[in-house]
Measured scan of single mutants.
Amino acid sequence: VHTTPGLPSGWEERKDAKGRTYYVNHNNRTTTWTRPIMQLAEDG
């Protein structure tokens, strides 16, 4: 699994054909234009 540093585990930053940045979530095979926020791990 490709992961971009600074993004949550399983996420990758890519660019489309027009050079726009988007983000790929390999965990559930989705994409988004919005940069994901790293969540702190919570117990329980």
Results as ranks from 00 to 15, higher is better:
1 V>R: 02
1 V>F: 08
1 V>S: 02
1 V>I: 07
1 V>G: 02
2 H>D: 13
2 H>F: 02
2 H>N: 15
2 H>C: 12
2 H>A: 07
2 H>M: 13
2 H>R: 09
3 T>I: 15
3 T>M: 12
3 T>H: 06
3 T>Q: 03
3 T>V: 06
3 T>F: 10
3 T>W: 07
3 T>R: 06
4 T>W: 03
4 T>L: 03
4 T>M: 03
4 T>Y: 09
4 T>R: 02
5 P>G: 14
5 P>W: 13
5 P>V: 15
5 P>A: 14
5 P>C: 15
5 P>K: 15
6 G>K: 14
6 G>L: 10
6 G>A: 11
6 G>D: 14
7 L>F: 06
7 L>D: 13
7 L>I: 08
7 L>K: 04
7 L>W: 04
8 P>F: 04
8 P>D: 09
8 P>E: 10
8 P>G: 08
8 P>M: 09
8 P>C: 10
8 P>V: 08
8 P>T: 08
8 P>W: 04
9 S>G: 12
9 S>K: 15
9 S>E: 15
9 S>P: 15
9 S>R: 15
9 S>A: 12
9 S>F: 09
9 S>Q: 15
9 S>H: 10
9 S>M: 14
9 S>D: 15
10 G>Q: 02
10 G>D: 03
10 G>W: 02
10 G>K: 02
10 G>M: 03
10 G>E: 03
10 G>F: 06
11 W>L: 00
11 W>T: 02
11 W>R: 00
11 W>V: 06
11 W>M: 04
12 E>H: 07
12 E>D: 05
12 E>F: 01
12 E>T: 07
12 E>R: 04
12 E>A: 06
13 E>L: 05
13 E>F: 10
13 E>K: 06
13 E>S: 08
13 E>G: 03
14 R>C: 08
14 R>H: 08
14 R>S: 09
14 R>Y: 05
14 R>G: 03
14 R>A: 09
15 K>W: 09
16 D>W: 00
16 D>K: 00
16 D>H: 00
16 D>G: 01
17 A>K: 14
18 K>E: 09
18 K>L: 08
18 K>R: 09
19 G>E: 14
19 G>H: 15
19 G>D: 09
19 G>C: 03
19 G>S: 06
19 G>A: 09
19 G>P: 03
20 R>S: 11
20 R>A: 15
20 R>T: 10
20 R>P: 00
20 R>C: 08
20 R>F: 06
20 R>Y: 15
21 T>Q: 06
21 T>W: 04
21 T>I: 12
21 T>G: 01
22 Y>M: 07
22 Y>Q: 07
22 Y>L: 04
22 Y>R: 02
22 Y>C: 09
23 Y>N: 06
23 Y>G: 02
23 Y>M: 00
23 Y>C: 00
24 V>R: 05
24 V>L: 08
25 N>I: 01
25 N>K: 01
25 N>H: 02
25 N>Q: 01
25 N>V: 00
25 N>F: 00
26 H>L: 10
26 H>E: 13
26 H>A: 07
26 H>K: 09
27 N>P: 06
27 N>Q: 10
27 N>E: 11
27 N>C: 08
27 N>L: 10
28 N>P: 02
28 N>S: 08
28 N>T: 12
28 N>L: 15
29 R>T: 10
29 R>G: 13
29 R>Q: 13
29 R>V: 04
29 R>A: 10
29 R>C: 08
29 R>H: 14
30 T>G: 02
30 T>Q: 04
30 T>L: 14
30 T>C: 14
30 T>D: 08
30 T>I: 05
30 T>A: 07
30 T>F: 05
31 T>H: 02
31 T>V: 07
31 T>S: 12
31 T>F: 04
31 T>A: 08
31 T>W: 05
31 T>C: 08
31 T>E: 06
31 T>K: 05
31 T>M: 04
32 T>Y: 00
32 T>K: 02
32 T>M: 03
32 T>C: 06
32 T>W: 01
32 T>L: 01
33 W>V: 04
33 W>C: 02
33 W>E: 06
33 W>N: 04
34 T>D: 10
34 T>L: 11
34 T>M: 12
34 T>G: 05
35 R>M: 03
36 P>G: 02
36 P>D: 00
36 P>C: 00
36 P>I: 01
36 P>R: 00
36 P>T: 00
36 P>S: 02
36 P>H: 00
36 P>Y: 05
37 I>K: 14
37 I>H: 11
37 I>V: 14
37 I>Y: 09
38 M>Q: 14
38 M>F: 11
38 M>E: 12
38 M>N: 12
39 Q>H: 09
39 Q>E: 13
39 Q>N: 12
39 Q>R: 11
39 Q>L: 08
39 Q>Y: 09
40 L>S: 13
40 L>Y: 09
40 L>A: 15
40 L>Q: 15
40 L>P: 14
40 L>C: 12
41 A>G: 11
41 A>C: 10
41 A>I: 06
41 A>Q: 10
42 E>D: 12
42 E>C: 11
43 D>E: 15
43 D>L: 07
43 D>Q: 06
43 D>S: 13
43 D>M: 04
43 D>V: 12
44 G>V: 15
44 G>K: 11
44 G>Q: 14
44 G>W: 11
44 G>E: 13
